[in-house]
């Protein structure tokens, strides 16, 4: 299944609470242990982007309104 959507994490707001990571039903997200935000947190990012459905659960549970959710607008029959 190709990705139906994707998310952007605004790293200004992300505090690495991990709630989005565990609440994502498709295992799309993880904390990025390679990077720190300007406030010193490991930000959430997509590690399985192909599994993202754009459902928005991560954004709903995010306490810091850090997540923007996009969905792809494919025509019927497109791969």
């Amino acid at each position: 299944m190709p990705a139906k959507g994707y998310i952007e994490v605004n790293e200004l707001y992300c505090k690495a609470c991990e709630l989005c990571v565990t609440d994502c039903p498709y295992g799309v997200l993880a904390l990025d242990m390679e990077r720190l935000t300007s406030k010193g947190y490991h930000p959430a990012h997509m590690v399985q982007p192909e599994a993202c459905t754009g459902c928005g659960i991560c954004a709903v549970v995010c306490p810091d309104a850090a997540i923007t959710v996009y969905r792809y607008e494919r025509q019927k029959g497109e791969a």
Partner: peptide, 21 residues
């Protein structure tokens, strides 16, 4: 693409002082 969820406009742009989680 289309945006299906984004931060509400009425929330100020500043970062809250609340703890993670």
């Amino acid at each position: 693409t289309r945006i299906v969820y984004s931060r509400p406009e009425v929330l100020d742009k500043r970062v809250t002082h609340y703890c993670p989680g």
